[in-house]
């Protein structure tokens, strides 16, 4: 299993290693938000509040859309070729999902590096924050791959569902604006969103509070999403027919 997962993981990672700049091109979205949106935020929030949210956002959109790569491989034929190979089906999903850690970490570090000159000051707890993020992106990646497998050869279904889900998740997690001042129903919906707990945890971790209840909830949310994603993904890959 580890052998097979390693093969799938390194295969997925290879195009990224061959062409590292491709990773940077995929992170324009959070950069736009940093440059064009964060200046509009009220004084008291600022970068200390905003940057941790942006990091989760880059994971949501990066890992969340990675199923598109699998969809492309389903259309061109390499997915079918791998289904016929003796690689374990579970490795086909786990290896792919684990690979999401790499671009997510690169994006996060770049976002932090870019914002430091503008006054962002991450606390050492951020390291633990990145770990939580890595767990979450494995889960989101696996869910995205599952969605690709479920869409079969109907590409539009994948993108329609992915977009339809991503935006409410983004807004309800309070990545862009604080949820606390919102109406009760919105706060309630926010509590149903696992990303809300991760965003809260990241904010506390990046600002130096490590052993808090919110961090614990964030960890739980990340592990929960990862477990769900891998479970659903493995089930789907096992039953994948081509």
């Amino acid at each position: 299993m580890i052998h097979d997962t390693t093969i799938v993981f390194s295969r997925e990672l290879r195009p990224v290693l061959r062409d590292p700049f491709s990773v940077i091109f995929t992170m324009v979205q959070p950069l736009f938000f940093l440059v064009l949106f964060s200046p509009l935020l009220p004084e008291e929030t600022g970068l200390q509040w905003f940057v941790p949210g942006m990091i989760v956002m880059s994971c949501l959109f990066g890992a969340g859309s990675t199923g598109g790569n699998l969809l492309f491989e389903m259309q061109t034929g390499s997915h079918e070729r791998m289904l016929v190979s003796p690689l374990r089906r579970s490795a086909l999903i786990v290896g792919r999902a684990l690979k999401e850690i790499v671009p997510t970490m690169v994006h996060s570090v770049l976002i932090i590096a870019i914002t430091i000159p503008f006054g962002f000051r991450p606390h050492a707890g951020a390291v633990f924050g990145l770990l939580l993020l890595a767990i979450m992106c494995v889960g989101l990646g696996a869910l995205s791959y599952s969605l690709a497998l479920a869409s079969k050869n109907k590409e539009w279904i994948f993108w329609a569902v992915q977009q339809t889900i991503s935006f409410p998740l983004l807004l309800l997690a309070g990545m862009l604006l604080p949820i606390e001042g919102g109406p009760a129903w919105l706060q309630f919906l926010s509590k149903l969103n696992p990303l809300s707990y991760l965003v809260n945890a990241e904010r506390e971790l990046f600002n130096g509070e490590v052993f808090t209840a919110n961090v614990g909830l964030g960890l739980l949310a990340a592990v929960g999403v990862a477990a769900l994603g891998l479970w659903v993904g493995t089930r789907q890959m096992r039953h994948a027919v081509a």
């Binding site: 295969r11 492309f72 491989e73 061109t76 390499s78 079918e80 070729r81």
Partner: peptide
């Protein structure tokens, strides 16, 4: 198995695949 599509991923390099 050599299917109707391309076994090698389009974003990969041939030798790597």
């Amino acid at each position: 198995y050599i299917g109707q599509g391309n076994g090698a991923g389009h974003s990969q390099r041939g030798r790597d695949e």
